[in-house]
């Protein structure tokens, strides 16, 4: 108890001394780690360039404006590709992720010893790797293009879809499931009547949410050759065509804002 008796007085402190010391020690270690890491970054930095940064930023800004609007006409096709990468990638991810989720959920998995760890492994490994890395890999395996990009988005999203969905499955109201079991329904029927209606809102919500994220991700896949508007960003950057870069960035911003708007509308409509 942090109440110490000093004769007649009872002194109240928030924490007792040992705990207080421990907290200070933790702060000290934390700050030391941070300073150490900062020193590493600082050593790897050419500070001369950094001090020059405001001038460079102003210089780039000056070159980037006004945007080269004629370039827009070349961008419609890659933008269309970008949207397709995101949409079809999300669709593929859902098709593959849903069974994985049912295998991974504690209350629906057919085998806890064998299939569940396998499903969890799929979830962890697809989720841990950024879609850009998947794109890098797929481009080197099946060649550049939007097909590689779509697969990259799909693989990265499997883990996301499956993880959120299996958590939703594990959180369902079990009495509703019991009620369906009590009617003599088969296992598949219990899933279709007792579980699916309960997870539907979560499922729809996370699908549009992931689609929204994927629009953002697919705008950059072109940097590694996986198609979409990122290719044009890359080539414009390579020739230092800043006015074109501005146009591309504006276009990406608008696409991201629209997709965010759509996804929030759809999510509201579902609940």
């Amino acid at each position: 108890m942090p109440v110490i008796s000093k004769g007649e007085l009872k002194v109240w402190q928030r924490r007792d001394r040992a705990k207080q010391l421990k907290i200070w020690a933790m702060w000290f270690v934390g700050v030391a780690i941070f300073m150490f890491c900062w020193k590493i970054i600082s050593d790897a930095t050419t500070w001369f360039f950094v001090f020059d940064a405001p001038r460079i930023a102003a210089d780039i800004g000056g070159r980037a404006w006004p945007p080269r609007w004629e370039y827009l006409s070349e961008l419609w096709k890659p933008m269309w590709d970008t949207i397709n990468i995101a949409t079809l990638g999300t669709l593929l991810a859902i098709i593959m992720g849903v069974p994985v989720a049912f295998l991974a959920a504690n209350n629906t998995t057919p085998s806890r010893k064998f299939l569940r760890p396998f499903a969890l492994l799929i979830i962890v490994s697809t989720r841990s790797i950024n879609s850009l890395v998947w794109a890098l890999l797929l481009v080197s395996i099946i060649g550049p293009g939007i097909f590689a990009g779509t697969l990259a988005i799909a693989i990265r999203s499997i883990g996301f879809v499956a993880k959120l969905l299996y958590e939703a499955i594990e959180e369902i109201d079990t009495t509703q499931v019991e009620a369906i079991q009590a009617t003599g329904a088969s296992k598949l029927q219990v899933i279709a009547y007792g579980i699916v209606p309960q997870i539907m809102p979560a499922f729809a919500g996370l699908s549009v949410f992931r689609w929204d994220i994927n629009i953002r991700e697919s705008t950059i896949l072109g940097l590694v050759g996986a198609g979409g508007i990122g290719l044009y960003l890359q080539s414009s950057l390579n020739i230092l065509a800043w006015p074109q870069v501005t146009v591309i960035l504006i276009m990406i911003l608008i696409a991201v804002l629209i997709s965010e708007w759509v996804s929030s509308k759809v999510r509201l409509a579902i609940i």
């Binding site: 509703q176 019991e178 009620a179 369906i180 009617t183 003599g184 029927q189 279709a192 009547y193 309960q198």
Partner: peptide, 26 residues
């Protein structure tokens, strides 16, 4: 223990699940 997101009719009909096949019920 009704399935909240199904209609009344679907809830009542779910009592017949033991009698109808999966696809018919689906």
């Amino acid at each position: 223990a009704l399935v909240d997101r199904l209609t009344i009719m679907e809830n009542v009909l779910s009592g017949r699940l033991g009698y109808v096949g999966f696809w018919k019920s689906f």
